[in-house]
Design a binder for these strands. Structure first.
Length: 568
RNA sequence: CGGGGUGUAGCGCAGCCUGGUAGCGCACCAGUUUUGGGAACUGGCCGUCGGAGGUUCAAAUCCUCUCACCCCGACCA
């Protein structure tokens, strides 16, 4: 490809609306442009990288026995009504009507479509297992799209769906996809971790996320320093610490004035008591009722665990008015001692046996010290309700958990029969009995991989692509376009590399060397060959890896073989 | 949806407080000189100042409403 013909306009200034690195660099390097919030144009370089990623995914999916299909993005409401998700999915599902008034949506995912497809024609155990996948544009009307491609409303996703005769076979399919995913992300050159995850609204019982480790990641994950245990903090099981058996040092709680000190941090600083000695009291709406949830002051509520433990459909922190109603005090002074107007009081395991603790007094500008669990208040039930934190004990071994930020680029779910039962996707087994198919579903965020790869691979000058997903292999820069020998050498090298099947971008623009170097760094192509007037007279060109390495002089005669070897 | 912020040339911004001929840098076009890490000079092109309404002799500037976008939170296969 000649750069004079390439549409990849670079920008010197950072775009104002881009904060995260991948967004900034993709815009500056001319890979993407924004059309609307969370909706982007993919320019030629981005399209090439997306193709590379897609082809890696195809290779691994095909190798794992899955077959590629291409399903409609526009989906009729009927099948969503059938699965129950037309009502449940909420405003994230972009719905619209056709000219006759019939209801449709733009597919955020394709369980309904695939189940509808498979149930029509698959009637026998002989046709199973079956695994179908596609690479396609998805649309989710996110409340708040952000961070460029990391959380867009329209994005490219690979989604796969497996159908099996029974649970054992379905779990084998799941393991097959898990293994394929590990290969996919390895081949994309990503530093990632597979972690145990919550199954969320999609249901099912077994789930892993593939998280690319990056400080800018939205997800928090924990991983054991000693064994292979890793999980999303939402999911991480916490072993119960030994219950405190120390005796309280004071006979009864003492009220202390804490004017306008509403947060644990403020009161902790004012009283000189560490946050871990506080009992945090959250008033939570659980399906309409108010519940008091107690946590140790330095811990955070895991809403997913709370929802699960209580079997609730909807939970949310109470509003100011509800807090006043429950505690008789403004927000910031709630505590479990005395009368709380809530349906019940539950607590995290870590609150059990706390003594000499600090809590709100259910009275404005007042806290209580010297509070003891059991003596001064009663909890109806203890659960594991908090988010895991650094140094929590590993639930599998004696190690300690460490925390990381991650970007979710893949997710595998064991679905069971949730959709096949709702939509009657059944088969006849060998004995002639009708049974629901057992399903799994598996997603990879293709465009998100592109962003995640940049989050992990960049420097102050631009993108540093992992070779496997770079838009080109080699970038050839003739440094003086007015020196015929330089242009001739560059043209010859361009032809020789192209003939050798190497993807090469030739910077044939009438630009000064400095501009060419700057743009080359922004683009992030793995190998750069600079051809200068001095070197060419001696039969020398300069080879430089985009990642780190030094410039190396290579004889013109051997540069093609050299690059062939490097790219093999 | 709650909180905060921004909309002025293709991009990044100043001007707004204190109303009076719409500016700067980059990019783009032409020319000259340059030519190994975003060249210099000269000339040139590009604006319904996000939109609507109002106040005023006069509005980018003041007032009201509205739309879009960004950040934090809530939300989220």
């Amino acid at each position: 490809m000649r750069q004079t013909r390439l549409h990849a306009p670079t920008i010197k200034d950072d775009p104002r609306d881009a904060e995260v690195v991948s967004h900034r660099l993709l815009v500056r390097a001319g890979y993407i442009r924004k059309l609307a919030a969370g909706i982007y144009d993919f320019l030629p370089l981005a399209t090439r990288t997306i193709q590379k990623i897609s082809n890696i995914i195809r290779g691994e999916m095909n190798r794992a026995g899955a077959q590629e299909v291409f399903l409609p993005a526009v989906q009729p409401a009927e099948i969503w009504v059938e699965s129950g998700r037309w009502a449940k999915y909420g405003p994230e599902l972009l719905r619209f009507k056709d000219r006759k008034g019939a209801e449709f949506c733009l597919g955020p995912t394709h369980e309904e479509v695939i189940v509808d497809l498979v149930r029509r024609d698959v009637r026998s155990w002989r046709a199973l297992p079956l695994n179908l996948y596609q690479i396609q544009t998805k649309f989710r009307d996110e409340v708040r799209p952000r961070a460029g491609l990391m959380r867009g409303r329209e994005f490219v996703m690979k989604d796969a769906y497996s159908f099996d005769v029974d649970e054992a076979s379905a779990l084998a399919s799941y393991e097959g996809m898990y293994a394929a995913y590990e290969r996919i992300f390895q081949r994309c050159g990503l530093d990632f971790r597979a972690v145990e995850a919550d199954t969320g609204a999609i249901g099912g019982s077994r789930s892993h996320e593939f998280q690319v480790l990056a400080l800018s990641g939205e997800d928090k994950i924990v991983s054991c320093g000693q064994c292979s245990y890793a999980a999303n903090v939402e999911q991480a099981e916490l072993v119960r610490a030994p219950t405190n058996t120390a005796e309280p040092t004071c006979a009864a709680p003492q009220a202390v004035p804490t004017p306008n000190q509403r947060t644990i941090a403020e009161v902790s600083a004012a009283l000189g008591v560490p946050e871990s000695r506080f009992i945090k009291t959250l008033i939570v709406q659980v399906d309409g009722a108010l519940v008091a949830v107690l946590l140790r002051g330095d811990h955070e509520l895991n809403e997913i665990k709370l929802k699960k433990r209580l079997g609730a459909n909807e939970i949310a922190l109470a509003h100011e008015g509800q807090v006043l109603q429950a505690t008789g005090a403004p927000v910031g002074f709630a505590g479990p001692v005395g009368s709380l107007n809530v349906s019940r009081i539950i607590a995290d395991n870590a609150v059990r046996g706390m003594v000499d603790a600090v809590t709100g007094a259910n009275q404005a500008d007042t806290h209580l010290t010297g509070v003891a669990e059991g003596r001064d208040f009663k909890v109806s039930e203890f659960f594991d309700l908090r988010l895991a934190v650094e140094n929590d004990p590993c639930p599998r071994c004696s190690g300690a958990l460490r925390t990381f930020s991650g970007i979710e680029v893949g997710h595998v779910f064991y679905l069971g029969t949730k959709y096949s039962e709702a939509m009657k996707a059944t088969y006849l087994d060998e004995a002639g009995h009708e049974k629901p198919m057992v399903m799994g579903c598996y997603g990879v965020g293709v465009t998100r991989i592109m962003a995640a790869a940049i989050e992990q691979n960049h420097d102050e000058n631009g993108i540093v692509w992992p070779a496997a997903i770079a838009p080109f292999h080699v970038h050839v820069l003739p440094l003086q376009m007015n020196v015929p020998e330089v242009v001739e050498a560059a043209e010859a090298l361009y032809k020789a590399l192209s003939d050798a099947g190497i993807e090469v971008l030739l910077d044939d623009r009438e630009e000064r060397a400095g501009s060419k170097f700057k743009d080359a760094d922004l683009y992030g192509i793995p190998w750069r060959v600079a051809i200068g007037a001095r070197g060419v007279k001696e039969g020398i060109v300069e080879l430089k890896p985009r990642r780190g390495g030094e410039v190396r002089n290579v004889p013109v005669a051997s540069i093609v073989d050299e690059l062939k070897a490097l790219l093999a």
